[in-house]
């Protein structure tokens, strides 16, 4: 099959993911023995993300036609796994448990304007969805099928850009500047549109230089379209929940201020 991933890449990603999950669990356990709170749900989300990533790169798609199989891998590696991994807030955990010297370096990095620029939602979206358009609307995909290195590079980009997009959009971990809700909604809308348009256009015409069957293209196109919907919906739900929580905090602050104002007025002689 032409779209199969190079074996060294699969082995490297699987090893790194398993080690990453073990390190995460160890760090979370240390935090809890220290007496700090760290919800178990985060451990579960991070490990689920790791599992999806490993499943994605091992390509267990059986008899699925090549382009559909490729699309399922993309959905796992570039969208679902990054979302789950980012929901585990790995950077926050690292900042709390790493040795002091490493922590200092990390803090400097998360406060630096240049290091955090790629995580700004519009930039991250451009890297992620721009890359996707390049892959499917230039001969890049057909060329990468004949070059294991390029194929590896493409998949590394898909994973990193996916992580960056979820990381920047959800802004769960502490970085220099938290983007506003309006910007995040606009980026999500634009990215969702770009994704849906690209998915539908693949229904009619496959990537240049490839010769996938019509049935394969149709299935892959719909996998991309509806799979993208599911992840978009999840991202939107997380951002909306963050907004709801922050409004609640503002409301409680206002209520407290009014309350203390009223008692002050009542006690005044």
């Amino acid at each position: 099959m032409t779209s199969a991933l190079p074996a060294p890449f699969t082995v490297a990603v699987t090893t790194a993911t398993v080690l990453g999950c073990l390190a995460y669990l160890a760090a979370a356990a240390r935090l809890r023995t220290r007496g700090d709170a760290w919800p178990y749900g985060r451990d579960a989300l991070f490990c689920a993300g790791g599992a999806v990533l490993v499943a994605g790169v091992s390509e267990p798609w059986g008899a699925a036609p090549p382009f559909t199989a490729h699309m399922l891998t993309h959905l796992c590696v570039g969208m679902l796994a990054p979302l789950l991994l980012v929901l585990g807030r790995p950077l926050t955990l690292l900042l709390r448990t790493a040795p002091v010297t490493l922590r200092r370096g990390l803090v400097t990095l998360t406060r630096s304007r240049w290091a955090t620029a790629p995580a700004l939602p519009p930039v991250a979206a451009l890297l992620d969805f721009g890359g996707l358009w390049l892959l499917y609307r230039t001969p890049l995909l057909s060329v990468s099928h004949h070059s294991p290195w390029l194929n590896t590079l493409v998949h590394v980009h898909i994973l990193l850009a996916g992580l960056l997009f979820s990381f920047g959009l959800l802004a769960l971990d502490p970085v220099r500047h938290r983007p506003g809700y309006g910007l995040r909604a606009a980026v999500l809308l634009t990215a969702g549109t770009a994704h849906a348009v690209l998915a539908k256009s693949l229904y009619a015409a496959g990537p240049p230089g490839t010769s996938f069957g019509a049935a394969d293209l149709h299935l892959a196109s719909q996998v991309m379209y509806y799979g993208g919907d599911a992840v978009e919906l999840a991202l939107a739900a997380v951002v909306a929940y963050q907004w709801y929580r922050s409004e609640g905090r503002a409301l409680r602050r206002a209520g407290r201020a009014r309350h203390s104002g009223a008692t002050a007025a009542a006690t005044r002689p």
Binding site: A185, L189, T193, A194, V197, A236
Partner: peptide, 15 residues
């Protein structure tokens, strides 16, 4: 237009 409305309607539902 279809893509915009498709992506937008999910966001509208959540919002």
């Amino acid at each position: 237009s279809d893509g915009l409305f498709h992506a937008g309607s999910w966001l509208a539902m959540v919002a």
